[in-house]
Design a protein around this nucleic acid. Structure first.
Length: 820
RNA sequence: GCGAAAGUGGCGGAAUUGGCAGACGCGCUGGACUUAGGAUCCAGUAGGUAAUCCUGUGGGGGUUCAACUCCCCCCUUUCGCACCA
């Protein structure tokens, strides 16, 4: 086995070089070929790549080679998501500058990829931390700003005390930081936002067209966007001309409103006049609520708390006066941050009302029984009551009628609310794209003129990385100090950098024109290559990257820079690689198996084979070095066999006898299956079927002619080549062929030889297998029946019994049913 | 709590979509060649059993000549969301 490894490594170097000479990795621009843009999610370079990353790349490479052999012109670029927090961590912990650390990691990782001979067009490599890239990230910010899609807002934001920066909603997982798992706290800060909410509907609608995206990802995005149809209703605050807008999806319960509740962060809090004797208590409640962590506040277990404001509101439909509460169970970021309290028909309102002695008025009852309120609120549909002229009807009908009524009277109007929040993109970090804005005392906040891009990051040697809760750039005088582009007076730069998900939301576009320094890209080129035909990456990005990536594409389309609005036509989610305890492999978890040393030891083809045979590409898999043994044995067997027969080429061969015919059928079946399996990302079964064929060849070798085996091995080498390309090329070369096996055409299977002449018919009696029968394919039903009842084994069971009927499945099975 | 997916030998996993359960591989057992074996080759390997017999795809019911596959109930695991009004 050690010799095999050594031999493979020599072969690998040779072919890596050869492929480069042949420009196999390049998009050719040949007009007779169909283009295919194949893309794997690019990686954050945190050191060497590990087996989890590799899976992604290998899956892509198999497809690439398969596509080449199927006549496609393939664009397959690679790059690095190179801005990010770990680089700063390295600076703090080990005193290495973020850029050095990053470029060093990129060097290690890309040399691994190159060593593996993966077909990437390295001339298109994109690195997000380079000036020639982040200049255009900043440019996108400016374009969005010009078009009203960027704004600044002061509000309570997610703050990671460990990373010392704010986070977007998508980066908070179970109230913990996505990077370091620290508990998130709230902080009131003025930050930059991308107005992704104004694209909520478009992002939702676009999902309909993404036929080749996995259903679960689309569902996750749908739920994340969370469209909800309802009504905005104004409740007047008694004794003022202030109105409180509430959002509800249940206007059919409006006669059951017995209080109103607003969030502690609600804007009206600052305007409302509270009684002096209550004021202190109210303000303390608000302050405490805001300080509480999200976990404390959002726990469903927790009792619903709130404080009466001393004010009353008026229900517009019946003039009823109800108390206005401030409640921390009302979310400030959803809807209007105010709700109408209907304890009879909403569980949360019910709990709050019970605790605070608020009246419960039932306005909907179940159709055929009485609701017992000791069980809680009744939240289903039913028949209305206590609702004036809307009483005694189906609540769904009432909903229609009351909605029309409220709109007619001008009390409110139909409205759609989304769960999706705007994208907070400011980060108090150094290693990111600086936000291209200038703060001027006279002119306000003004954008950096386009001609001044990029706003360069200062050299990291001049930066103090000690966490201070604000951007490290803020204390860098020569970065911060700038002249206002409008009035020319002293002004300050924005000290924050952009969320790195902004960088990765448009890289797929830059690959089309990676070296353009005049503009972000040539529209013509982008239109030629995009959308991406197959995007491969992990499902964990469903509600982060994959939404941002669609959002930015839609924005650039609307601004006229693109003529399509979805970045990728097809998406494939490869499963994650876990360690043997079932933990996701990652650098930070310390369980990452690095690719470089692994490949040095076993060779690329073994590494590829191991990754591909581990299980279906779409499912998670446990990493185990045991897989190496099976694949190595297989390659050894293949090599030993193939090198005996790879001499000349027998182009066409008609099977000469039954054994040859049987093997020829097996070959055809295998060709079909491997092709189907590659398209379905089911590489494990493709390899299994090729192992089966090889096992069969070994078994029958002595019964087969040289010509036949020569013919078989040629095709075999072709279909296995996407999986183990180096060894395949070496075998292929033996056939006195030049160039590369990847320039040959994928073999077609012969439809006439997909089925054996003889079939085994399973003989069942009362559904139990009693015997098997080998007959000619398509033997007549009656004839089979006749021979079955004469069969000795069957006779034994038929003794003293009568056959009631029998079922025959052509070429498969016969089932005799006996009379009871 | 809601939504999605999944549960098959000692292990990773197959099963043409209702028709031979366990392909292929690991591991294990035996044998051959060997000074040697973490090499190679051959045979065996779901469980129970004397058996060509019985049992078996998370559990329980059902449909069917026939169920890993379809229907109903339950259990478990993973993932996503989680006071969204």
């Amino acid at each position: 086995m050690v010799e095999l490894m050594e031999e493979l490594k020599k072969i690998e170097e040779k072919w890596n070089k050869r492929w480069k000479e042949l420009s196999l990795q390049k998009f050719k621009g040949e007009s007779d070929k169909k283009k295919f843009y194949l893309l794997e999610m690019f990686a954050y370079p945190s050191g060497d790549l590990h087996m989890g990353h590799l899976r992604n790349y290998v899956i892509g490479d198999v497809l690439h080679r398969f596509l080449l052999m199927n006549g496609y012109d393939v664009l397959h670029p690679v790059g690095w998501d190179a801005f990010g927090l770990p680089a700063e961590g390295a600076a703090i912990k080990r005193g290495i500058s973020p850029d050095k650390w990053t470029y060093n990691n990129i060097g290690i990782s890309s040399s691994t990829l190159k060593k593996m001979g993966l077909l990437y067009d390295w001339d298109r490599e994109v690195i997000t931390c380079r000036e020639d890239y982040y200049k255009w990230t900043q440019w996108i910010f400016l374009k969005m700003y010009e078009n009203g899609l960027v704004y600044r807002k002061k509000s309570y934001v997610n703050w990671c005390p460990s990373c010392q920066t704010v986070l977007a909603n998508e980066q908070v997982i179970n109230n913990k930081c996505w990077r370091c798992s620290s508990e998130i706290t709230k902080k009131e800060l003025e930050q930059w936002y991308f107005k992704i909410t104004s694209y909520a509907q478009k992002l939702l609608d676009g999902l309909e067209d993404l036929k080749d995206w996995p259903e679960n990802i689309k569902t996750m995005q749908k739920n994340w966007i969370g469209r909800s149809e309802g009504l905005l209703i104004d409740f007047q605050v008694k004794g003022t001309d202030l109105k409180i807008k509430v959002f509800t999806t249940r206007p059919d319960t409006i006669y059951g409103v017995t209080f109103l509740a607003i969030a502690p962060e609600h804007d009206l809090i600052k305007i409302l006049k509270f009684d002096d004797d209550k004021k202190e208590m109210i303000l303390k409640y608000i302050e405490d609520s805001i300080k509480k962590s999200e976990i404390e506040r959002s726990s469903t277990e927790k009792e619903k708390s709130g404080v009466w404001s001393g004010l009353y509101c008026i229900n517009p439909v019946n003039g009823r006066e109800v108390k206005l509460f401030i409640c921390d169970y009302v979310l400030s970021g959803y809807g209007t941050g105010a709700v109408m309290g209907v304890p009879a028909h909403d569980q949360r309102d019910f709990e709050f009302a019970q605790k605070n002695g608020i009246e419960i008025i039932q306005v909907i009852k179940p159709k055929d029984y009485e609701w017992d309120f000791s069980k809680g609120a009744y939240v289903e549909d039913g028949i209305t009551l206590n609702s004036e002229q809307f009483s005694n009807m189906e609540s769904s009908l009432m909903k229609e009628k009351i909605t029309d009524f409220i709109e007619e009277k001008g009390y409110g109007k139909r409205s759609v609310t989304y769960r999706l929040r705007d994208w907070l993109i400011s980060r108090q970090r150094y290693w990111g794209a600086p936000i291209p804005m200038i703060h001027c005392e006279r002119c306000g906040i003004v954008p950096v003129p386009e001609k001044d891009l990029p706003v360069r990051l200062p050299d990291s040697s001049e930066i103090d990385f000690t966490p201070k809760g604000k951007s490290p750039l803020e204390s860098h005088k020569s970065f911060m100090n700038v002249k206002c582009p409008i009035c020319g007076n002293d002004a300050l730069r924005d000290p924050d950098t952009m969320d790195t998900f902004v960088d990765s939301s448009w890289y797929q576009l830059r690959y089309a024109d990676p070296k353009n320094d005049e503009k972000i890209f040539e529209k013509e080129l982008v239109d030629k290559f995009l959308p991406v035909d197959m995007y491969i990456g992990g499902a964990e990005h469903a509600n982060g990257h994959l939404i941002y990536f669609r959002f930015i594409t839609k924005v650039l389309k609307d601004l006229g820079y693109l003529s399509f609005d979805e970045p990728a036509l097809a998406l494939f989610n490869q499963g994650m690689i876990m360690d043997k305890n079932g933990n996701v492999m990652s650098k930070s978890a310390g369980n990452a198996v690095p690719v470089g040393p692994f490949v040095d030891r076993y060779g690329t083809d073994v590494a590829r084979g191991t990754e591909l045979f581990i299980g279906p590409a779409g499912k998670d898999a446990l990493w185990s070095e045991d897989g190496v043994i099976g694949i190595s044995r297989f390659l050894e067997r293949l090599k030993n066999f193939a090198f005996k027969y790879n001499k000349n080429i027998v182009k066409d061969y008609t099977p000469q006898n039954d054994i040859e015919k049987m093997i020829f059928v097996k070959l055809n079946k295998t060709i079909k299956q491997v092709g189907d399996d590659i398209r379905n990302f089911s590489h494990n079964t493709a390899l299994a079927s090729m192992m089966e064929l090889l096992n069969l060849l070994y078994k029958e070798e002595k019964n087969l002619s040289f010509e036949f085996l020569n013919f078989i091995i040629y095709k075999y080498t072709q279909i296995i080549s996407p999986f183990i390309p180096h060894l395949a090329e070496e075998i292929y070369e033996g056939f006195n062929e030049k160039d590369s096996i990847f320039l040959t055409t994928w073999p077609e299977y012969d439809k006439n030889f997909l089925m054996e002449d003889n079939v085994t018919i399973v003989v069942q009696i009362d559904g139990k297998i009693r015997d098997r029968l080998v007959v000619q394919r398509d033997t007549d039903k009656e004839e089979i029946f006749k021979s079955v009842i004469l069969n000795e084994t069957v006779k034994k069971y038929l003794k003293d019994k009568e056959i009631e009927k029998y079922v025959y499945v052509p070429n498969r099975l016969i089932n005799l049913i006996l009379k009871k």
